[in-house]
């Protein structure tokens, strides 16, 4: 798979896929998409980058250990679920607020952060498996 074309295209493809995955993640509440699908897309993006250019560039690019990212996702999801407890509503109740950005009221919710947590867990866990497999298949 170490072809010139693939190696040249892979970074662009990966960037596009990651961007797309974030798009899918954020639109998820109203359109098809969401954290799980977004996470899968991003994970395949990293897998492609790894196959094309080797594992160490990917590890450098994502900076954190993939399992660390997954752990962070779980913590984020847990915290956004727990936030509701402090507002005297049951665990995992969605809380909504509106944040004005450029004169536009953007809805922000704990649910969104929960979904972002899901995204990170999926990206982290699958990327970690893929990278570990790729690494070992080379030695």
């Amino acid at each position: 798979m170490n072809t010139l074309i693939f190696r040249t295209i892979a970074p662009y493809l990966t960037s596009l896929m990651v961007l797309f995955s974030i798009f899918v993640l954020l639109r998820g509440h109203n359109e098809p998409g969401g954290g799980f699908i977004g996470g899968l897309i991003a994970a395949s993006a990293f897998a492609i980058y790894g196959i094309a250019c080797g594992v160490s560039p990917v590890r450098r690019a994502i900076y954190f250990h993939p399992l660390g990212i997954a752990g962070f996702g779980l913590v984020l999801a847990t915290l956004s679920g727990m936030l509701s407890v402090f507002f005297h509503v049951p665990f995992m109740t969605g809380l909504w607020g509106y944040v004005p950005i450029f004169e536009e009221n953007v809805p922000v919710s704990t649910v969104l952060f929960f979904d972002i947590g899901v995204y990170f867990v999926v990206v982290g866990a699958i990327t970690s498996v893929a990278l570990a497999l790729e690494e070992r298949s080379r030695d």
């Binding site: 998820g28 969401g34 995992m92 969605g94």
Partner: peptide, 18 residues
């Protein structure tokens, strides 16, 4: 506050499952 029912179930109605 979500139009995508599948996603709303995943992250809100059945959030604890997820």
């Amino acid at each position: 506050h979500g139009a995508n029912i599948v996603n709303v179930i995943l992250v809100d109605f059945r959030g604890t499952d997820t």
